[in-house]
Design a protein around this nucleic acid. Structure first.
Length: 170
DNA sequence: GCCAACGTTGGC
DNA sequence: GCCAACGTTGGC
């Protein structure tokens, strides 16, 4: 079992939206490194030379749901837990000229972007903010705390995942 | 709103 | 293949 962190602008798609939808296709990721965590390296989810990397999302993996670009009322941080609910599949938004994530370079015959489905697990009783995590030495080494860390899908260590859950509980 | 850090593009 | 220019992300 692997653990992950995915970012979403809270004002754009929040943990409450995921709770309402129960499940959503994690479309719109347009960064190769982030994509490769979903697909296993190649575009289509079968990995490089048919071999999936170890560090790739698998059905059932648990995910920290992180709100980026927060403000005073809604601070940046982890707001809930989700899980990976599908293998990588074609991200339909790349073919839609009206979609903000439209990619004119990508062709149906050879799609560039794939995504997994993400399902709601729980909302934390209280968010674990970025500020909280920076203050707790147990989070030392966590990718999201690093300066300039823009990766929207990140692997997370089990100990960091469990610590978030602990701090976010009642 | 600012701006540093980052990823991508494109000229050469 | 280098690297400057550009657009975007995201903390503050």
């Amino acid at each position: 079992m692997n653990y992950w962190l995915i970012k979403s602008e809270g004002a754009c798609y929040s943990i409450d939206d995921l709770k309402r939808d129960k499940k959503t296709a994690w479309e719109g990721v347009r960064n190769y490194q982030a994509r490769n965590f979903m697909t296993g390296g190649a575009a289509n989810g079968v990995g490089v030379n048919g071999v999936k990397a170890k560090n790739v999302m698998r059905v059932g993996d648990l995910v920290l749901f992180y709100h980026s670009n927060g403000d005073v009322e809604h601070p940046t941080g982890v707001y809930g837990i989700a899980k990976v609910a599908s293998e990588a599949h074609v991200d339909e938004s790349q073919f839609d000229p009206k979609d903000e994530h439209y990619d004119p370079k990508s062709k149906r015959e050879k799609p560039m972007w794939h995504c997994v489905d993400i399902a709601f697990v729980e909302k934390l009783a209280q968010p674990v903010t970025l500020a909280d995590m920076k203050l707790d030495p147990k989070f030392k080494g966590m990718l999201v705390l690093e300066r300039g860390s823009r990766l929207s899908i990140q692997p997370v260590l089990e100990k960091h995942f469990e610590r978030v859950r602990e701090m976010g509980g009642q």
